[in-house]
């Protein structure tokens, strides 16, 4: 229960930070994608079930808050959460290179998805310009902020796991 509330609050806070604070800073032209970081962090730390559900929740939340088609972001976030969940317990989550590489891969997937379905299908082919103007700045900024956010999610996860263990012991 505490975990559910914690995760929802985390998503809400990151969303507000992403759109209302970081998105509005005059000296940063790009917005980091914090919800994607949360999705892959939870997938990596908690497995494919939770990754999938968190991703679907984040994506649908974004869909609800924007003017686009409902379910469009939901799909890609859900699959990213699921795929990162496949790595659960297969790799060491404490190595700092892991979140950096994963953040990079997830961002690439996400942008590729948007490019194909919202641009390529309309006959817009300028991938070079998009790469320069949109994808790369967002990728770099998200990776930089993502390392810290990943650390925060890991800390929160540790606290919650301790709490769950203690309450399980009490129950016995």
């Amino acid at each position: 229960m505490l975990r559910l509330i914690g995760t929802v609050l985390l998503i809400l806070l990151s969303y507000l930070l992403q759109t209302s604070v970081l998105g509005m800073l005059p000296f940063i032209q790009t917005t980091p994608n914090l919800l994607l970081v949360i999705t892959f962090s939870i997938g990596l730390l908690r497995g494919k079930e939770e990754g999938m559900i968190t991703g679907a929740f984040c994506g649908l939340f974004l869909d609800l808050m924007s003017g686009g088609y409902l379910g469009f972001y939901g799909l890609i976030y859900m699959y990213i959460g699921f795929m990162c969940g496949l790595l659960y317990q297969h790799i060491d989550v404490d190595i700092p290179l892991v979140p950096i590489v994963l953040c990079f891969v997830c961002q690439a997937l996400y942008h590729f998805y948007i490019f194909i379905f919202r641009f390529l299908l309309r006959g817009r082919l300028g991938i070079g310009a998009y790469l320069n103007n949109i994808i790369l700045p967002e990728l770099v900024l998200t990776t930089v902020i993502g390392i810290f956010l990943y650390g925060a999610v890991m800390l929160l996860n540790g606290v919650l796991e301790d709490y769950e263990k203690r309450s399980a012991l009490k129950f016995v």
Partner: peptide, 9 residues
């Protein structure tokens, strides 16, 4: 009050 969903739109 906010810039929406990512940098593509």
């Amino acid at each position: 009050i906010a810039k929406n969903t990512g940098n593509w739109f």
